[in-house]
Design a protein around this nucleic acid. Structure first.
Lengths: 107, 107
DNA sequence: TTTATATATGATAAAAATTTCATATAACGA
DNA sequence: TCGTTATATGAAATTTTTATCATATATAAA
């Protein structure tokens, strides 16, 4: 059985899911808007939103036939910390050479 | 070409590499001791240490025929933040259901 | 200067993650 | 209640990541 750290990174460090968390920083959005902004498949987005909901990184409320998603404060802060670290180490990350070169990419 | 966030998570969210960073929190260790403590293959450990070095998450100094590794302060702090978040969300992560069930696991 | 220990490298094999596909459900408006 | 929009589900296919293997280098001790 996986431990909590494994599960955490599976949820949080996933390209599409982290992109969602980045979008939701400091603002709420419905699934349709996330889809347009991120340019992802509807079905993938839905899978990913469910995962983030299950982990309680985000919450949701209904508004007509739309679902409006919101990131929680602690997760918002952690996303900020990570973004800061990425910025500080960007130069070295790009020169690493061991990390793979191709992938669809986060925003 | 991958962006910095992709590269960051490739380096940081990797099971073996994060285990190394956890071990190096607040203490220096040589490769051999990391190997014993983590119970990993020598060759995998070496690949992972090189990656962490390239990204400047850790540094190294020679001591006889050993290499002694040290985590940097910023990365140490980020590891702490993540560990805290994992602890806070552990219950939900384990009930997620979407995240995969089997893997070798972080420590 | 040979042997043993400590660590590194690169290619391929194995395992795991992500995407796609086919389809389902839920809410609203005509 | 029928069609349309918005979102969800599960399984299979594809892609990516991680582990293994064979071997190399570097330092020190005998």
């Amino acid at each position: 059985m996986k431990n909590a750290t494994d599960l955490f990174f599976d949820a949080f460090a996933n390209k599409n899911r982290f992109n969602i968390l980045m979008q939701l920083r400091n603002k709420e959005m419905c699934a349709g808007d996330l889809q347009k902004t991120l340019g992802v498949e509807q079905t993938n987005l839905s899978h990913d939103l469910k995962c983030l909901l299950n982990c309680k990184f985000i919450s949701v409320r209904k508004e007509g036939r739309k679902r409006v998603y919101k990131i929680n404060n602690e997760t918002n802060e952690l996303v900020d910390e990570v973004a800061k670290h990425v910025k500080n180490y960007e130069t070295y990350l790009k020169k690493c050479g061991i990390l793979k070169e191709e992938k669809n990419g986060r925003i």
